[in-house]
Design a protein around this nucleic acid. Structure first.
Lengths: 200, 200
DNA sequence: ACATCATATGTACGATCGTACGCATGGTGA
DNA sequence: TCACCATGCGTACGATCGTACATATGATGT
């Protein structure tokens, strides 16, 4: 059974079998948000219902409407957390780079490697963009995300180069993620080089 | 009332009020597919139900299961048509370009202009990628689309440059489409130039 | 120890969904 | 002209959805 990471109070009270104590669970809200992302990865936003998320989080259905004012708020918080997480990792990598050359190498590593190229990240990013393409509320979220990425790139590159790099990263990640057999990483190296080389 | 473009047989038979003649409508299947795309643009794949699509196409609900073997087949055909259309327009633009310089200009025009930058195209592309990220069936579709784009670019650029340009176009289009106030078109010109300049 | 009440949850409702299937329909060959 | 039957459609069914709300629960102050 999946029953992942039993939260506090989820298990039965040994002293009173058959009864469940659920009160006083401060992390419940967080768990719901995480479970929401998990369900989205597996079933998509379309398949992410209150019931599925509640089951995945190990909380009763009633907790959904109690902690969140409707599905939209839950989605907003979930994708906010996701974008923040990816953004943090990106920012950290850029901060760790000593100069533009290291930064370029870090960008290549992010695209070809483990951070942006996860199936989970690909799915969640696509789902978020789909929401953003239709609802301004989520578009604000993606805009803040893009702005943060460009700012992180701005540590090492001029603003225009940062914008172009940001777009290139997006396209490369997306295409490599969707491609049945992704082209060689050398292409990524070359592409990044072409963009940053002229930016000095 | 929306009741767009009454198809043949959709209106009442003047000779027999209250009766409807629906037989012999060869374009019905096509109309359903087009209506499907319209509904997806407006409500998303999640909101594209048989009933909504049937209403938009001006056909009875029964026609849905009659012409298509389930929702998945309808989606597959609809997105196939969409990808083919965009691909055709892209191909044509590339074919019209006399040399690499004109091709580069065409790429800029496509990204900043009217073909790829429509809200409709943005929404449909996002929705398709979201499906592709999860289901291999739709991933094949996007793969064929990407292959065709690269082949079209291959008329004027070497294969590696074509791959990079393809990714750049994707990222630029997506970011410009989602950006609340898109950066200047000059950035697009510069980015394309940087990618193709080193490709000679 | 006990009354109190904010916190938390179980349940029920109306809407909408995809799909199956029996029947109406009208083109067609005799 | 008319019977026939492939084509096309109206309708009903079971499932699932988001959400509201009455009620259970247990922490807390006295």
């Amino acid at each position: 059974m999946p029953e992942t990471a039993d939260g506090p109070g989820t298990t039965e009270d040994p002293a009173a079998p058959g009864r469940r104590t659920r009160r006083n669970d401060p992390e419940r809200r967080d768990r719901i948000i995480d479970a929401c992302l998990d369900v989205i990865v597996e079933r998509g936003v379309a398949g992410a219902s209150h019931r599925k998320i509640a089951e995945a989080a190990g909380v009763p259905l009633g907790s959904m409407t109690y902690h969140f004012d409707g599905m939209n708020e839950l989605l907003r918080e979930a994708f906010h957390r996701f974008a923040l997480g990816v953004s943090d990792r990106f920012e950290r990598r850029m901060a760790e780079a000593a100069d533009a050359q290291e930064a370029a190498a870090a960008v290549v590593a992010l695209v070809t490697g483990d951070v942006l190229a996860t199936r989970r990240d690909l799915v969640l990013t696509s789902e978020l963009y789909t929401l953003a393409a239709r609802e301004p509320e989520f578009r604000d979220l993606t805009n803040r995300w893009m702005a943060r990425s460009r700012a992180a790139l701005g540590r090492h590159f001029d603003p225009v180069t940062a914008i172009m790099l940001d777009a290139l990263i997006e396209g490369l990640t997306l295409h490599r993620g969707l491609d049945t057999d992704p082209y060689d990483a050398a292409v990524v190296v070359e592409a990044v080089e072409r963009i940053v080389r002229s930016g000095d």
